[in-house]
Structures are given as structure tokens and as C-alpha cells.
Simulated assay, not measured.
Amino acid sequence: MKTNQLMKRIFAGSLALVSALTVGTTAFAAKTKIADVSQYQGNINWSKASKDLRMTIIRVKHGNPGDSDYRIDSKRNVNANGAYKHGTPFGQYDFAEFNSSADAVNDARQFYALSNKHARFYVLDNEKRGAGAKGHEQTYVNAWYKTMRTLTNKPLVYYSYESYVHVHKMNYSKFNGSWIADYGAKPDVSTDLWQYTSSGSLSGISGRVDLSRTVDNSTVTKWYTNTPKATYFTSVSNGQQLRATRNINRYKTANLTGKVGSLKYNSNLTAKAIARSSHGTYRVQLSDGSYITANKGYIQAR
């Protein structure tokens, strides 16, 4: 009797363990999809979508001010906050329409300023030629890349269609990876992530969505797992000129308490000294006596 009861308990425990492992394995296996999303996916149920997604790539904007089809993605913050809340790592992308090198520089600065601080990597979506880009596509891509590299040490990824890469002979070897679209077959150009369909399905989205699969799994994984740590200015000279690369606030104290104002990205700043918070975090004291973050993800030397 005791032996039978013991065997029953062992059997029941084994079933419970197998059940738990199966659920865990199924849940893990479900997180295999890679989707890019924008306002065109409407209101995404991120609780459901997160159960399918290995990662996602979220649009920030389309074009630059002055372009006839310029728009800031109305769901960029909702989607970024939803993905972050539900534990889905994400990057963000910039649909560009370059007309000049100056346009590419301004495009990169605005894109970075509008991006979410939790983005693990940034993508240049280079699939549409601006009116003045003929013969200069590579020059403008290089200007975007160079500008972004001064703003962040997070991975930078190049996106385009296979046909665009061929026609314009694009070189994106400086980027930390590539994401290439071809809905017929695996791209015949260098690619780490392959966007293979625009009519995929995903839990939490009622319509169709772009889906991608990895070609170089190791490279793609690094985009969202090897996120560099924040770096800070540890010294400045009195009168040194700085530039805000994101919208930031000014405060009365080095603990960033007592907000006294805000600054828009690209604002010029004059530093007075470096200060430390009560926890030892570096801050910049400005010439007017107020304090701002010393995080190089938010300010840069001019």
C-alpha cells in the first residue's frame, strides 16, 4: 500500500514536471518571430504579441521635415513602451529620403532625438531615393552613419531591398549588420536578417505584418543583447560648448531635483563645471547654475 502510494506520488510528480517543462519549452519556442511595426499595425496588444516575438523593430519616422510625405510615426512611443513593458527587446528604424548630405545629418539627429531610450539598436531604412540623391546615395548613407556614430555607441543596422542595393551599388560594411528585404528568395547580397514577407501574422495584431528571419543568428542576437553601458562626461572646461542630442530638463541641484526648464535637441549649451550627485553620478553644471545629465547619450561636445 505504501509502495503503491509512493509510486503514485512519483508518477504524479513526474507528470507535473513534464507538464511544466512542456509549457516552458512551448512558451520559449513561441518567441521566435521577428516583426517590424509602425502606426499601420494600429493598436497592438503587446501582452499577446510579446509571447510570439523574439524581438521587434519599431518605426520612428518617415522622411524629413519638408518632404511631402514626412511624418512622425504616431505609435512610436506606444509601441516602444508596450514592447519594453512586456519584455520584448526592440530596435527602431528611420525611413529616410535623403536629398543632400546636410539632409542626412539632420535626419539622423532628429531620428535619434525622437527614438526611445530603451531601443537596443538603430536602423537606417534606405529604400527610397530623394529627389536630389541620384548618384549620391552612398555619400548620404555615409553621412547618416557618421552622424549617428557620434550620437550613440549602440549597434547601427542598414536596411534596404536587394534590388536597391544592386542598382545603387550600396556598401554598408561599416554598419554593425544588415537587414535586407526580398519576398521571393533569400537575398543574394550580404545580409544578417532577411525580411521575407509583408503578409505575416502575429498575435496581438489584427492585420498583416512584415516578418523577418535570421541569416546570421549570432550577429542579429548581438544587436539586442550586447547593449553598451552608458558613458558620462567626467570633466568639462568652464565655457565649453555642448549640444543636447535629445530633449532634456534642467534642474536646481546635481541630484536633478527642482526642475527649472527644458531644452530641445540641438540646443547649444555652455558648461561651467562637472558636479556629482549624492550617489556619485556625474552631472554638468551650466553657466546659468542649473544642472543637466552628463550622459553622453543626451549631450555631446560641439
Rank of each mutant, 00 (worst) to 15 (best):
K128C: 12
K75C: 05
G132S: 13
F121R: 10
Y158M: 13
L156C: 11
F111L: 10
A102C: 03
N106D: 13
F111H: 09
F175M: 08
Y122A: 06
G135V: 14
N99I: 10
V167F: 10
E127M: 15
N99W: 06
T88K: 01
S160E: 04
K146H: 07
N153G: 13
S115K: 01
T88D: 02
F95I: 07
D103A: 04
G87T: 12
G130T: 06
Y145M: 08
K146D: 10
G87C: 11
S160D: 07
Y84R: 09
N126C: 08
L156P: 02
Y93E: 02
S178V: 02
V157L: 06
A102P: 03
N176K: 04
T152V: 02
V141G: 12
R149W: 11
V123W: 00
H136M: 05
A119K: 01
S115D: 04
N142K: 12
A80S: 13
N106I: 15
T152M: 03
Y122V: 09
N77A: 08
N126G: 08
S178M: 00
K154M: 07
N142E: 14
V165A: 13
H136D: 11
N142T: 14
Q110T: 08
Y122C: 06
V157Q: 01
D125G: 08
G91R: 00
L124V: 11
F98D: 03
N106E: 13
Y161N: 09
I180L: 11
K75H: 09
R120S: 15
E137F: 06
N99A: 09
K75Q: 07
L156G: 04
F111W: 03
Y112W: 00
N171P: 05
A96K: 08
D107S: 12
S101G: 04
D94K: 03
G91F: 02
G177T: 14
D103T: 07
S178T: 07
Y161H: 08
N81M: 06
S173K: 03
R120C: 15
A83W: 01
F90P: 01
V167E: 14
E127Y: 15
D107P: 01
K169I: 01
D182F: 06
N176Y: 04
S101Q: 02
V78Q: 14
